[in-house]
Every structure is written in structure tokens, then in C-alpha cells.
Amino acid sequence: MKLLTRYMPLAVTLLACAFLLVPTLQSVLAGITANYFRGLSSGLTLKWVGEVWGLYADSILLSIWLALACLAVTLLIGVPAAYALARAPGRLSRVLEEFISLPLAIPGLALALALLQLYGAQQGFRAHWSFILVGHVLYTLPFMVRAVQAVLAAIDLKTLEEGAASLGAPPWRRFVDIVVPNALPGILAGSLTVVTLSIGEFNLTWMLHTPLLKTLPVGLADSYASMRLEIASAYTLVFFVMIVPLLMAMQWATARAQRILS
């Protein structure tokens, strides 16, 4: 009985881990197995990973490009927006904040549909990568604003700025010298979140993409649907290699920002 109570939690934990890890490992293994239907005895190979690169290099590069562009836009809009919200905490600011956060509550599909209705007729824009970018920015902006705003709310921004002003700093210098450096932990956490979400985003992108503009997750769906299992699995492997380091960096940056908040 005593033995049971001691080892029960461990057993449950291990089972839960196995439940999550076994399919993942299986999928990864499938991606480097020469012939999945004959099993591991057929030998290990990187051939399928090579095939993925050959077939989907464009998707991988497009995703990276979109993530970076999305990051640039959310930084440009999100940091000043968070600053403005932190400087004027009032009812209007809270309403605006909710408004910015709205895309979090609305399903990506609905958001995509709205974008298609609004801009679908403009052929040049519709078929351009910037159309997907608009969707990604809408979806990731609240994460940037929230992350920066939380850090800004934790420091006595008003007095720091008054201090800089008393020393002769005009408003833009105060923003560059005081606000941005002190918000950096939040900006870093927000940036990693935005890049990770943008690379992994599927719902919106699936609706917005054109056959010539497939992002990493859209390509993954495509490979599942139309390629042999080994290629799809190798694709998953590529996806993991890209997203896992980002996720880890995001965790680290968020923990770092949290330390400053406390």
C-alpha cells in the first residue's frame, strides 16, 4: 500500500510523458527511416529531409521572412502603442487595450474571412505575401503590446521621464534613452512570442494563402495530404528543429521579464 502511494505519482507522470512523447518520437523516426512500412530494419536515412528541402524550401524561407516582417511591424506599432497605454492609464486606454486583444478571442478563420471579404477583390494584394503578413500582425500584435506594457507598468515611467526631461531631454530622446532600454525585457519576450506564433500559425494562414505562397505549417498540411508518409514525417522533424529552440528562448525571455516585474 505504502509502495503504491509512493510510486503512483511517478507512474502517472511517466505515462503522461509517454503519451506525449511516443507519437512524437515515432513521427521523427518515420522521417529518418528508409522505408516506414518495413520499419527501422530498412535503415536510417536523411534522404527524406533532403526531399523536404527540395520540395518545400520556399515555404521554409517564406515563413522565416514573414516572421521577421511580422516582428518588425509589431515592434513598430506595438512598442509605441504599449507606451501610450502605459502613459495614460484610464478608461479609454482599457477600451483600446481590449480592442487590440480582440483577435485573441476571435477564431483565426473568422479573422481570415473578414480580411478576404475586405481585400479579396484587390488581386495584387490578395496574391502578395503582405496579405498573409496583415493576418499575422493582427494575430500577434496583442502579445507584443501586453508583454511590453506589463514591463512598463512595473517601472515608475512617469518619474523617470520627468527626470530625463529635467536634464534637458526632449520627448523623442526620452523614448529612445529611457523608455525603450527599460522596456527591453518585455520587448524581447514579446518578440520571441511573435516570431514563434507567426512561424507556427496555421488557421489564418490556411485561409489566406495562395498555392504559390505556402508557409511552413501550410506546407506541412500539404505534405500530409499529398506526399508519402516519410516525407511528411521528415517535414515534422524540420518543423521541430525550427520551433523548439524558439519556444525555449521564449520561455527564457518571459521568465526574465517576470523577474523584473517582481
Binding site: 517601472i155 515608475d156 518619474t159 523617470l160 520627468e162 527626470g163 530625463a164 529635467s166 534613452d177 529611457i178 532600454p181 527599460n182 527591453l184
Partner: peptide, 11 residues
């Protein structure tokens, strides 16, 4: 100006 909380720049 010297502020009550000093307002020194932590960065």
C-alpha cells in the same frame, strides 16, 4: 531636479 524617489535611470 532631485526627485523624492531619485528617478535614477536603471539602464
Amino acid at each position: 531636479m532631485v526627485f523624492q524617489s531619485y528617478a535614477l535611470f536603471p539602464n
